[in-house]
């Protein structure tokens, strides 16, 4: 990343053309955000009238935001999303790291075929499991509960693979020295392996968190109770309820988009690196 920024670029026709293409793409990609933002700041009358305009006749207003926030559901859903996503992330990273370490370092019987089974399971689309999983949740009495949302999302075979590949690269001498001193495997794992793996753990955690925060299908199936819905599911239900209230729809969308965008702006570097490493994990 730094290598790029230090390279000085002369002003050539080619570079100006490249900048223009970059600019056009950026404008196109930012346009839906801008349009949603402007709409959310209009009165409902202005939002629903033609011709389409960027500057509303009655001026800008925060009415739509006041309406949406006054309703209260949005904050409940944000809380639900945060709670479930954090628990999913912690469980997924914890379980995957423990398993990955075993596959990387411990010589237990059945290791090879078990690893093959777990890697092979990456191919299973979670969507084909919805019917039996829903049945299971009924049987376990977990429909319309937080655990019902969380538990089926905790399995991430791809993350086991990525973490194992990373653990494989850690020099074994570091661990052997501690083992000689009598440290248990768990202790070696906690005090040597985990601290060395902080970047990859962060990358996996970010990846899992974004996926969980934005997951739609499973939470949609498992929750009917408005008070337990996550943000994406709740948003889907109001869209039809609000109908033609465009300004309020857009205010909701903007507010729902905000948390992850803020997180991204703060951790931009880590997130970009995280996506690159986990996304390329299969390579």
């Amino acid at each position: 990343m730094t290598a790029i920024q230090t390279r000085r670029k002369p002003i050539t026709i080619g570079n100006i053309a490249a900048l223009m293409v970059l600019g056009v793409l950026a404008v196109s990609w930012l346009l839906p955000f801008a349009w949603a933002l402007v709409t959310s700041l209009k009165t409902e009358t202005d939002a629903g009238s033609t011709p389409v305009s960027w500057i509303p006749p009655s001026g800008f207003t925060f009415d739509a935001y006041a309406q949406v926030l006054g309703d209260g559901n949005l904050l409940t859903w944000t809380f639900n999303s945060l709670l479930t996503s954090v628990i999913i992330t912690v469980l997924t990273v914890g379980l995957s790291a423990l398993a990955a370490y075993a596959f990387s370092r411990l010589d237990f019987s059945g290791r090879k075929w078990l690893f093959a089974v777990i890697i092979g399971s990456i191919i299973i689309p979670p969507q084909v499991l919805i019917i039996p999983l829903f049945y299971q949740m009924l049987a376990m009495d977990l429909v319309d509960t937080y655990w019902g949302i969380i538990l089926p999302q905790v399995i991430a075979p791809a993350m086991v693979f990525i973490l194992k590949k990373f653990f494989d690269q850690i020099p074994i001498e570091l661990e052997e020295a501690a083992r000689m001193d009598g440290a248990s495997r768990l202790r070696v794992f906690m005090t040597i392996v985990l601290p060395l793996s902080r970047p990859i753990l962060a990358a996996v955690a970010i990846f899992v968190f974004i996926a969980a925060w934005n997951n739609f299908l499973w939470p949609f199936i498992i929750t009917n109770d408005t008070a337990l819905m996550t943000l994406p599911v709740g948003l889907q239900t109001v869209k039809s309820a609000f109908g033609v209230q465009y300004a309020q729809n857009m205010a909701m969308a903007i507010l729902a988009a905000l948390p992850l965008i803020v997180v991204f702006l703060i951790f931009q570097r880590q997130i970009i690196r995280g996506i690159a490493t986990t996304g390329l994990g299969g390579q």
Partner: peptide, 29 residues
């Protein structure tokens, strides 16, 4: 390596952070 690195990255990648519900609200509109 042209100027505006953070702007390009931000604008191209930002939509990926949105939930499908937000994307749908935006684009239906």
């Amino acid at each position: 390596g042209l100027p505006g690195q953070w702007l390009w990255r931000l604008s191209y990648f930002m939509p990926y952070l949105l939930a499908s519900s937000v994307v749908s609200l935006f684009w239906v509109w």
